[in-house]
Design a protein around this nucleic acid. Structure first.
Lengths: 342, 342
DNA sequence: GATTAGCACTCAATACAGATGAGTGCTAAC
DNA sequence: GTTAGCACTCATCTGTATTGAGTGCTAATC
């Protein structure tokens, strides 16, 4: 048996209806739809075939049919072309984003909110990967006699900061000099390269080795340590509005996931490619999201460094709309974060 | 009718049982308890009195009794003395907190997790109020030709940073000078005082007024603007484990509240005093938390600046335990944040 | 006079039995 | 190949007992 044109059309009609209603759809419903010129009986025969092919499932004998993940996969692969986002919506998004100040954190926060609001699903955004960003400046500011604040400014305007301890002998002026030197050495390199550069500097640097050694050791550790992922979530309770998650146990599952930013970031990074990619049901590989779909995309910041965005919703998600919005938002975020550097 | 010793004892027994089980408690249950030497019939008579006095309520005729908010209030006011926290638990908390690095954000994050874990309720911690902190240093670091990063280090080691735009004529060296000058002028003052100091500086400063004017205007705005509250939430899904919130609609209510950090911060600041304070049911004044209790406390950082911590749970919360833990955690947080400055 | 045993009463929760109706699968007619 | 017709399935709804936890009241007991 093969999936001919008519079967495909019927399957599409079923999916479209199910996305809207979340209720098993029957043959009569499809038959009534304009564009399908067949009686319920014919539809039934086709549905029976579609079930055998694994595209449909029946919750119980006397219920209508529900699309399987295989059906969504087909639907996404065959039908999906990103649509056009309406002008008003574009404007609404732009305006909301414009009002935000220039801090990276704020922009990402705003973007997550917009994304959740536009899709009505839960959104997740991972900040640009700091390891791949190019350093622009390093600054060390005294805080107390023995501690200082180290600030690293990168090409995306992103800051990595950490409190480090310094020898009491180093005063404000010498820290300033150290800052200038480090800026000179590290500028235009990525964080990932810091270790090698430091190694080279240790060889070349004859003076002050004892004094600087300790400071730089700490810096190196701080810079190269795995930072807790910078992840923001928008509309974490949006999913509770969908009937498939009205069960408190299911809800607990993914709400717990949202508490662990690290796991979320891992999820996005594992599943994300450059383009918008769709993971249906178990494809995403996390048990808590087995009956969810995950749509991921990435955005670029400057020449290096990129971050991820994703939305999580029921498998019967409005893929077309989501993909469209994701593409657009990826653009918007890239643009806003890149304009930081101007 | 008056609330004599025996009535009070029975009421306490009822509350204790209800806190444990969340089920209406009947006369037989109380009668069986050791320490209560009366038959169910006697208890029933007393319960009937207690109901008339407004301390108990019956969900329906043939159910047991449930304590009213008035009862919890009495219970809390009359009985509550903070207990002792077990040595093991203390150690567990200390150890978990010790592992955290010295960043304020991280410490608060960890504290929220510990608090939620220890109480099994949802915890909220508001970072120290930045307006009352004393500035230690101001540093302006160039990012691009026309933008710079302004960093303010305060007594708690807390950083306020913002991207500001600067005239293209100002190079790294002059920004450094500006930083030194600002540090000199602003050190030891609170953020709240910045506006006056700037006003005075404008009068005194004859040179470079045009050049500096713009920069300082921006700085003033950034420093005095209402920062989005720095609030962390721990165990936001903990409440879902309690039967009173198994209804998805109720759950949505307070989960939505957790998405708005500003509202949460406002809630804590409005309700919080210096000591541990307890707000039962509608006392906290937020509709979404009408059937929750809110326990708040504050912690001090250095001499100035203080933050809030709170936990949110069902009205039948284990107040004694919660108060004990809150007192202890307030101490721990104060200690850890203050040690920052050493 | 306080306490308790006894008993009738209430009412949520549970279980069960039809009834309903949406939907199917199959067969025979078109 | 398509469709009308019909028997069948089964979740859902509705109404009715049944159960049992718990109460309030009264009369007996301490």
């Amino acid at each position: 048996m093969v999936l001919d044109e008519r079967k495909f059309m019927i399957l599409k009609a079923i999916i479209d209806d199910y996305i809207l209603t979340a209720m098993p759809v029957g043959s009569r419903t499809i038959s009534r739809k304009s564009g399908v010129g067949f009686s319920p009986a014919t539809i039934r025969n086709e549905m029976s075939d579609l079930e055998e092919l694994g595209y449909l499932a029946q919750p119980h004998t006397s219920a209508g049919r529900v699309p399987s993940n295989k059906a969504y996969r087909l639907y996404v692969d065959r039908i999906l072309s990103s649509g056009e986002i309406s002008a008003e919506e574009k404007q609404r998004i732009e305006e909301y984003m414009k009002r935000r100040s220039g801090q990276v954190e704020d922009i990402i926060r705003a973007a997550a909110d917009v994304l959740a609001d536009a899709t009505q699903y839960t959104s997740v955004i991972v900040a640009p990967q700091i390891q791949t960003l190019r350093i622009k400046r390093v600054q060390i500011v005294p805080v107390t006699d023995t501690t200082a604040l180290m600030i690293v400014v990168t090409s995306a305007g992103i800051i990595k900061d950490a409190i480090i301890s310094v020898p009491a002998e180093m005063d404000s002026e010498s820290l300033h000099k150290l800052s200038e030197m480090l800026t000179h050495e590290l500028a235009e390199h990525t964080l990932a390269e810091v270790r090698q550069i430091f190694a080279r500097m240790f060889r070349d640097l004859s003076i002050n080795r004892r004094l600087l050694g300790g400071v730089m050791q700490v810096m190196e550790d701080k810079l190269t340590e795995d930072a807790p992922e910078d992840v923001v979530i928008g509309g974490s309770t949006k999913l509770l509005n969908y009937p498939e998650y009205s069960d408190i146990e299911k809800a607990k599952n993914f709400l717990a996931l949202f508490e662990s930013r690290d796991r979320l970031a891992g999820l996005l990074k594992r599943n994300g490619g450059m383009d918008v990619t769709i993971h249906i049901g178990a494809e995403n590989g996390v048990a808590a999201l087995n009956d969810c779909s995950l749509v991921t995309a990435s955005y670029r910041v400057g020449e290096h460094g990129n971050g991820m965005l994703g939305i999580i919703g029921p498998t019967r998600m409005n893929y077309r709309r989501v993909v469209t919005i994701m593409e657009y938002m990826g653009d918007v975020i890239s643009r806003m974060l890149s304009s930081e550097q101007k």
